[in-house]
Simulated assay, not measured.
Amino acid sequence: MAEITKVGVVGCGLMGSGIADVCARAGLDVLVGEVSAEAAAAGKARVIASLDRHLRSGRLSERDWEAALSRLVFTSDLGDFADRHLVLEAVAERREVKSATITALDKVLDLPEAIIASNTSSIPIMELAALTDRPDRVIGMHFFNPVPVQQLVEVIPTQLTRDDVVERATGFVTARLGKDAIQARDRSGFVVNALLVPYLISAVRMLESGFACAEDIDTGMALGCAHPMGPLRLLDLIGLDTVQSVAESMYEEFKEPLYAPPPLLRRMVAAGTLGRKTGRGFYAYGE
């Protein structure tokens, strides 16, 4: 079985740019795809900004910065992914977008052993795998934000994923990227979000009810439970739209009322106040 050296990343937003960063610094040949030349240029700027942060902090030398950048190629043509050993989709957390991306990738990948991996936070992997002619080579690889900093990746096989695909994906995460992998069952939310999202939603409901203000909720959990940050600040970091999508997916699968996005969260998403990425969420953020 060929070693995974040619990696594709489809989608170069917050998550995709982080995945591209860690793959390039790991010495891999990385092809990054976006929907248009303009989006690809914006994605490239995002990755360069991430590499620049490593350079300024001393975690990356100028020589390694140049080497990482040389391994990155950006495209708006999915056909360019034909020779990839592994393609990670990191497009928007919406079923229709991820479904269309997975279906298109299945048609263009040439190598019979090529793996398609989804970075979805919540959509059942089998639902995506069923759209392909290679369901035994589709797997979930869920990275966490910010990808260059967060150490964990959830590896999610389906009932049909081959054992060797699980081994290759897990080995890629641990041996090549130097991250830690846990295996999750293919159920909406997987391990981390199944525990995290109800907690975050509870914090929104507490604020919505007037039980406590945002600052006190966050201070209480940060100082009282030794969390790195409170739930509302964490929501702003993740993105309110992403959390709403995960909550909707979990509610659809389990019909558990605690998973349903509360009205305040829905109104904030509708207003475009999505957290740090828009400059305003439960808190306001400067440049």
Rank of each mutant, 00 (worst) to 15 (best):
P157E: 07
A181D: 13
P198V: 07
L195N: 00
Y199M: 15
D133M: 09
E96L: 04
G178F: 05
R162N: 14
F81G: 07
S118G: 00
N145F: 06
D80N: 03
V147E: 03
M206I: 13
V155Y: 00
R94H: 13
R84N: 10
T170W: 08
D80V: 00
A181W: 11
A169V: 09
T120F: 06
R95K: 15
D163L: 08
L196I: 15
V204F: 08
R176E: 05
V97G: 13
L195H: 07
T174A: 05
L111N: 07
I201K: 14
V91S: 06
V191R: 05
E208G: 05
A100W: 03
F143V: 01
I115N: 05
D80M: 02
A90Y: 02
A184M: 09
I125V: 15
I182H: 00
R94A: 15
L152D: 08
G140L: 01
S202C: 14
A114E: 05
R137Y: 03
A104C: 07
M126K: 13
I156N: 00
A194F: 13
A175H: 14
I116G: 04
D186T: 14
D136A: 03
R185W: 09
A181M: 12
A194W: 12
H142S: 06
G189N: 08
R176M: 03
V91W: 02
Q159F: 10
V155P: 00
V166L: 14
D163G: 14
S188P: 13
I116P: 04
D80S: 02
D80T: 07
V91N: 01
V165Q: 03
F172Q: 02
I139P: 04
T161C: 03
T120E: 01
A129W: 09
L111M: 06
P146Y: 00
V197N: 11
H142G: 04
V197E: 09
E167Y: 01
R168V: 03
Y199N: 15
Q151R: 12
R205T: 14
A175F: 14
P112S: 04
I139L: 08
D106H: 05
R137C: 07
V204A: 12
A129S: 14
I102A: 01
E89G: 13
A203W: 10
M141N: 01
V173D: 06
F190P: 11
E127V: 15
S188F: 11
R185I: 06
A130D: 10
E167N: 02
M141S: 03
R84W: 08
V149R: 04
L105S: 09
V173W: 07
S202I: 05
I102N: 07
N119C: 05
D136W: 03
T132H: 04
A203Q: 11
R185K: 12
A82E: 03
A175W: 14
R185M: 09
R176T: 13
V147P: 03
L131Y: 06
Q159Y: 11
E89V: 09
A203I: 11
A104N: 00
N145T: 09
D80Q: 06
V197W: 10
D133C: 08
D83G: 12
S209C: 14
A181E: 12
G178L: 02
R205P: 10
A130W: 02
L105I: 02
V197S: 12
R95E: 15
E96V: 06
F172T: 01
D110W: 07
L88A: 09
G140S: 07
S209N: 12
D163V: 06
V147L: 00
E167F: 05
T170I: 05
S209E: 14
A90Q: 02
D83M: 12
